[in-house]
Simulated scan of single mutants.
Amino acid sequence: MTVEATPTASGGPGGNASGGAKPPETAEELADWWGVIRSTPPGAQFDDYFERRDLGQIILFGIDSLDPTVQSQIKALRDSGKIVHLYGTLLSNVPDYNGSQIQVDRIEVEE
């Protein structure tokens, strides 16, 4: 399944998830989305985001995990410039970066 989002969904970067086209907390499985994990500036509402780069344009998503090991990986990979491949669930129209959040089950880091 391919899931696409627009870079300006739900009020732009850091949006509050209001006015999204999907019902709150719509969930869709995702596999092998690749890109980089970035930190937000100090004082921002959210601490990090994922730059999806596999579609020929950069699309931004909030990122988190329920698994403490994966949470640590996300934090360690912020601003590293390393390409990561994500597997998990995309939640749409939620209070996270750009009105979306990837709940990561697994991260693979390119060497």
Score class of each variant (00 low, 15 high):
Pro68Ile: 01
Asp64Ala: 13
Pro41Met: 02
Pro24Phe: 15
Glu28Gly: 03
Glu108Val: 15
Leu90Met: 04
Asp105Phe: 12
Gly43Glu: 01
Gly81Pro: 10
Thr6Glu: 07
Leu77Asn: 03
Ala31Trp: 08
Ser92Arg: 14
Gly19Gln: 02
Gly88Tyr: 06
Ala21Leu: 15
Ile102Cys: 09
Gly88His: 05
Ser72Asn: 07
Gly81Glu: 07
Ser100Gln: 10
His85Phe: 15
Ala5Glu: 08
Asn16Trp: 12
Val109Thr: 11
Ile107Trp: 06
Ser10Met: 15
Gly11Asn: 03
Ala5Ile: 02
Arg53Gly: 04
Lys75Ile: 06
Tyr87Cys: 04
Leu91Ile: 10
Lys22Arg: 12
Leu60Gln: 13
Ala31Pro: 07
Ser39Val: 09
Pro42Val: 05
Ala76Tyr: 05
Gln101Gly: 04
Ser39Cys: 09
Ile58Pro: 02
Pro7Phe: 00
Thr8Glu: 05
Tyr97Pro: 01
Glu110Phe: 13
Val104Ser: 06
Val94Gln: 08
His85Ser: 15
Leu30Trp: 08
Lys75His: 05
Pro13Leu: 11
Gly43Ala: 03
Glu4Trp: 04
Gly12Trp: 03
Gly99Ala: 13
Lys22Met: 13
Ser80Asp: 01
Glu29Tyr: 08
Ile74Lys: 07
Ser39Pro: 05
Lys22Asp: 12
Thr26Ser: 12
Glu28Trp: 07
Glu25Gly: 15
Phe61Gly: 00
Thr8Phe: 10
Gly19Asn: 03
Gln71His: 02
Ile83Phe: 08
Ile102Lys: 09
Asp47Asn: 08
His85Gln: 14
Gln73Trp: 00
Leu60Arg: 12
Val36Arg: 09
Leu86Ser: 04
Asp96Met: 05
Glu51Trp: 01
Trp34Tyr: 14
Ser72Phe: 03
Ala9Arg: 14
Gly11Gln: 03
Glu51Cys: 13
Gly81Ser: 12
Asn93Tyr: 02
Trp33Ile: 13
Gln103Glu: 11
Asp79Gln: 05
Val104Gly: 03
Val104Leu: 10
Gly88Val: 02
Gln101Arg: 11
Thr26Leu: 13
Asp48Arg: 15
Lys82His: 13
Gly99Thr: 08
Ile59Gly: 04
Asp67Thr: 01
Gly20His: 12
Glu110His: 12
Gly88Pro: 03
Asp79Pro: 08
Pro42Gln: 03
Thr89Leu: 06
Val3Asn: 02
Gly14Ile: 05
Ala17Pro: 11
Lys82Gln: 14
Thr26Tyr: 09
Ser72Ala: 15
Ala21Trp: 14
Ile58His: 04
Ile58Cys: 06
Leu60Lys: 12
Ile37Met: 08
Thr69Ile: 12
